[in-house]
Amino acid sequence: MKYVIYTLIFLSAANTAFAQKDVQAKQILSQVSSKYKTYDVIKTNFVYTLESPQANVKETQSGTLIAKAKTNKFKVTLYTNGKTPAVAQELISDGKQQWTYLKKDNEVQLNTVSNSDDALNPAHIFTIYEKGFKYTYFGEEKKGGIACQVIDMTPTDAKKSIFKVRLYIDKAKKQIYSALIFDKNGNKYTYTMQTFMPNFKTTDAVFAFDVKSHPGVEVVDLR
């Protein structure tokens, strides 16, 4: 499971109207960022969809994100489809170590947290725009009956595997409603937020993989 939120490059010599849209995009994103930074821990339930035209694949899964941005801690859970969803995969980090749990294989991979520019930290998913992106405002659009402000983000580094992220911002709540991610292989990834719980009450134990509660799990240490 790889979280990809990172080659369209908008020319800096664009016209005045285009520049004004950039200023508006920054203002909207700053409002979103400022709001999220007031929270200690957030929890959101989301729906994740992968579309791969080359592989003729379209898959949808539900998931949960618990994030403590100030300490770079997070837990992402993806569930199986069906009447009784169960945990399929988990990505957990305590800020220093990262666990990738694959239930089907009863295996967990342990890595050191990467600080490279290519590594996406889900704890900072709501403030990702602050570094390494250009952004442009594209007006308003309704998504799921909600008035959203649409912003396109493109990485300043053309070598990135992601070439565009389209954000839909809930205009009233100043929260991210959904994110549509495009990569250079023609794949599209959509994350749509279903619920949002600010200042969610939890303990730091959530941000570490508990081997004892997973009998027989194989630990693959890749550090």
Score class of each variant (00 low, 15 high):
Met1Ala: 13
Met1Trp: 10
Met1Gly: 10
Phe10Gly: 03
Ala14Ser: 12
Ala25Leu: 04
Gln27Cys: 04
Leu29Pro: 00
Ser33His: 04
Thr38Glu: 14
Tyr39Gly: 00
Tyr48Leu: 13
Tyr48Met: 13
Thr49Leu: 03
Ala55Leu: 12
Thr60Pro: 06
Ser62Lys: 14
Thr64Leu: 07
Phe74Met: 01
Leu78Ala: 08
Tyr79Glu: 01
Gln89Glu: 15
Asp94Gly: 02
Gly95Met: 03
Lys96Gly: 01
Asn106Lys: 08
Glu107Ile: 08
Leu110Ile: 06
Ser116Phe: 07
Asp117Glu: 13
Asn121Ser: 07
Pro122Ala: 06
Ile125Met: 13
Lys134Ala: 07
Tyr137Met: 07
Lys143Asp: 10
Lys143Ser: 10
Ile146Val: 15
Ala147Gln: 14
Val150His: 05
Asp152Gln: 10
Tyr168Gly: 01
Ala172Phe: 05
Ile176Phe: 14
Ala179Phe: 02
Phe182Tyr: 15
Phe182Thr: 03
Asp183Ile: 05
Asn185Pro: 01
Tyr189His: 08
Thr190Phe: 09
Tyr191Gln: 02
Met193Tyr: 14
Phe196Leu: 07
Met197Glu: 15
Met197Pro: 00
Thr202Tyr: 03
Asp204Trp: 02
Ala205Phe: 07
Val206Ala: 11
Ser213Thr: 15
Pro215His: 08
Pro215Leu: 09
Gly216Ser: 10
Val219Pro: 00
Arg223Phe: 02
